[in-house]
Design a binder for these strands. Structure first.
Lengths: 155, 155
DNA sequence: AAAAATGTCGATTGATATAGTAGAGATTAA
DNA sequence: TTAATCTCTACTATATCAATCGACATTTTT
């Protein structure tokens, strides 16, 4: 699958936004996410905007602007996010459900590689479709204890 | 993980060589593998040579030359092959056992993404470390019936 | 109305990886 | 000696990735 840096940044940003998520209109600035997660700001801009167009985030402009989750973190799976940012989860596109592409092998239906890669795909999808942003936030809390860890911030 | 074309070609070639594998000195020409599997010949040359230096294949030069498996197909796992051709199986190198690299997140030990990606890595590795070239050949036979399928060859 | 802090959008860049090609050489069997 | 093979190194074209930039739009505060 090989997650790109872009995809990793997306997930890191979503954790920040997930931890911040409260019903209400609270919003987090790009700059804050960038600083807390050590992500180049201009690059992060693109990514957040992309997640907005995916319907994962919403934004507020102007001086008190920023981003927040558009949906509850329980309803955002890693699979959805990664698919939107990176494309197929499958190791080869000839076994991808949503991004299928014919491959160059002589007979796709009877291809042994394909059958193995389908297993790999299923294993990946099973995990990534199960894990939500909310669960990632849980893990963060469990791993770090309930109070914010100073190391989470760049000084 | 995103298998590259190079990696896929390597596996396709290994299936041909696995099916051909008999104790003895029988050898398959690059040209034949290239034709049967629809792989650019000069590109395949590199790949087979690479698998040779990995200790997976051996070769014979000269007019009756070609390649064959150096070890029994039961002892060659897909994990080994892909790792040699492509590098890490893990989606991010900060969870790779053999190709570990530090990532840019603020605190790697307490990183939630890392913990998910570790699960993904384990799932991938479990499959790919289990499946051998011999098993791939079994699957081919099962999928195609015991006699060679004409579609296997480019006419 | 103006200023300042934010998000928005499209283009550009530099580095690296990928897929493939090319040429000259070494080895072996007939 | 010839012809068919593998071997080795280099090259190239294209795509992708990570990041940067500039100009613009929106909103709040003063």
């Amino acid at each position: 699958m090989k997650l790109s840096v872009r995809g990793e940044y997306a997930l890191r940003a979503l954790i920040v936004l997930g931890l911040d998520y409260i019903e209400g209109d609270s919003v987090v600035r790009i700059h804050e996410i960038s600083t807390r997660q050590n992500i180049p700001k201009r690059f992060l801009e693109q990514i957040l905007n992309d997640l907005k167009s995916a319907g994962v985030l919403e934004s507020k402009r102007g001086i008190a602007g920023g981003y927040r989750l558009k949906r509850a973190p329980e309803n955002i799976t890693l699979a959805e996010v990664i698919r939107h940012i990176e494309g197929p989860l499958a190791p080869v596109s000839c076994v991808s459900e949503r991004f299928y592409e014919k491959c160059s092998c002589p007979n796709e239906d009877k291809c042994a590689i394909r059958s193995v890669m389908k297993e790999v795909r299923d294993a990946i999808v099973k995990i990534l479709e199960d894990v939500t942003v909310a669960q990632m936030c849980e893990r963060v809390k469990k791993l770090q204890g309930t109070q914010a860890n100073p190391l989470d911030y760049i000084i």
